[in-house]
């Protein structure tokens, strides 16, 4: 029999690493890099998804084969869970990854990522990039570029080494 013991207050952890994902393969590369980095410096992880249906691909949050209207954030949560599971399956060492805090906010991605990083006192933002180039980059820009321009904390842009996937 043991005596009752008071659990001590959790000490506030180190500043978190913020990994911004959109569930693409580029995001997967960023996610894996971010989790490994966090393990190295034992920082907590925040995985952020900005819920924003892209104008060029409306219906990103449609759940196929479902007739009931689901809030976009619910679908985003399901996508996030599937995404993390997929990434963890592909890289077994992610199994012992520290606890990951999942976060969702609505709005325009680039601005929101910077704001959340600020709000959560993130020490680092990790983000994937599609490696768009030429005209489409000029017209549409990229979230990563905007984050790079606006962020006050260091930003790591991870390029997936997979061949470019069609949109």
């Amino acid at each position: 029999m043991d005596d009752m013991t008071d659990i001590s207050f959790k000490t506030k952890g180190a500043e978190p690493i913020l990994i911004a994902v959109d569930f693409s393969s580029d995001s997967e590369a960023a996610f894996i890099w971010g989790v490994k980095q966090a393990a190295l410096i034992s920082a907590p992880i925040i995985v952020l998804h900005v819920v924003h249906d892209p104008a060029e691909k409306p219906g990103f949050y449609n759940k196929l084969g479902q007739s009931a209207l689901l809030p976009l954030e619910e679908v985003a949560l399901e996508k996030m869970e599937a995404f993390i599971q997929m990434a963890s399956k592909a890289y077994a060492e992610l199994d012992n990854a520290p606890i990951i805090d999942k976060k969702f906010v609505a709005g325009l991605p680039a601005g929101r990522i910077i704001e959340v990083a600020d709000h959560e006192n993130a020490q680092l933002i990790v983000i994937g990039t599609r490696g768009r180039s030429g005209l489409s980059n000029l017209l549409l820009g990229s979230v990563a570029t905007h984050v790079l321009q606006g962020s006050k904390v260091p930003v790591v842009v991870v390029k997936s080494d997979q061949p470019k996937q069609p949109d």
């Binding site: 219906g59 990103f60 209207l69 976009l72 609505a106």
Partner: peptide, 15 residues
Amino acid sequence: GFISAGLLSMAQSVS
């Protein structure tokens, strides 16, 4: 109403 309740996106509503 649907958009502000988070059920539809602006992108979906345009068409």
